[in-house]
Amino acid sequence: MEQMLLEQEKFIRLGFFFGVFALVALWELAAPRRRLTVPKAGRWGANLGIVVFNTVLLRLLFPMAAVGLALAGEEKGWGLVNILEIPTWLAAFISVAVMDFAIYLQHVMVHAVPVLWRLHRMHHADLDYDVTTGARFHPIEIVLSMLIKLAVVMVLGPPAVAVMIFEVLLNATAMFNHGNIRLPEGIDRVLRWFVVTPDMHRVHHSVHAPLANSNFGFNLPWWDHLFGTYFAQPPEGHEEMELGLDHFRDPKQVNGFIGMLKLPFARHIGEYAINRRW
């Protein structure tokens, strides 16, 4: 069973990725939240090119990945969850919540440490906001993120199935909450108590630094409420809010494949990194 899970994991993840991507992309066509400002073909080509590059890079550097490490942990009894004698369903629930909290802390960290912000700002520099933005991360940040994830798996010792569920949920919700999609206000108000919605996360992509340093959650919204980083709505409204970073407005620089890879090395760091404003 465990070997089958390991063998099928990449196909399960790819299936959910393409399924959710297609659903959100069609939703964006049917009910867009905002008018796009940059030609879609060029942006999508560059953003999806980064996704393919990062996927190949991770497979080359980490062939076992997080699910494989979790299987090894179960076999050898590594980690806190494996020490505790609790039902598998409870271990899985706790593990998914703890791993999501770790992602929240990681997200705060890449905003707080200037050298890490240099990497993360590639994600924020997108001049528009849609399903492809959710997977647009610099390759160096992706590698660091995987190292952090593997460290969490080693310490926590989650069931392998919980790791797979978490990976699928994280990818799916990242595409959903970056979608340029319109939700009825009442549904959004209720839904954002259980999952990060597009309107909630779009605030985080505001050009204004205080808003960009709020709403750090990717999947579960509870951590933002608990730690006081929740901001409900942009003052200017979602249709009028300006996205991206104030010092990076050239589409060729921020929405081109090579330009995106060069962004961490641009001299100006701006006032977005939290520590720059303390």
Rank of each mutant, 00 (worst) to 15 (best):
A160W: 02
A91H: 02
F227V: 09
V254N: 06
E75S: 13
A66E: 13
F93A: 15
Q3W: 07
E240A: 14
G73H: 07
N213R: 06
L60E: 13
N213E: 01
W278L: 14
L169I: 06
A174I: 06
I274R: 05
V20R: 01
D100G: 01
G237N: 04
F218C: 00
V131P: 00
L156N: 03
L71N: 04
N177C: 10
P139R: 04
L69E: 11
V108L: 14
V115S: 13
L220E: 04
R276N: 10
H238E: 10
Q106R: 13
L245F: 07
Y272D: 14
E239H: 11
M64R: 15
Q233S: 11
F18L: 15
D126L: 02
L170T: 08
E239N: 02
Y129I: 03
L170R: 11
M99G: 06
G270I: 13
N180S: 05
V38L: 02
L169R: 01
P39K: 11
R35G: 01
W27T: 05
A30F: 09
A70V: 09
L90R: 03
N215L: 08
E239K: 13
W193K: 08
T173Q: 15
G259L: 09
V108Q: 07
E271P: 00
E236W: 06
F137N: 08
G134Q: 00
N47H: 15
G179Y: 03
D126R: 01
E271H: 09
R202M: 13
L263P: 02
Q106F: 12
V163A: 05
E9P: 00
V67E: 13
M241Q: 14
L170N: 11
P221S: 10
D246V: 15
V153C: 01
N177V: 02
L69D: 05
H120K: 03
L58R: 07
R249S: 10
A160P: 06
A41Y: 04
L144M: 13
V56P: 00
R121P: 06
R35I: 09
G49E: 10
R182V: 00
M1A: 11
V96A: 12
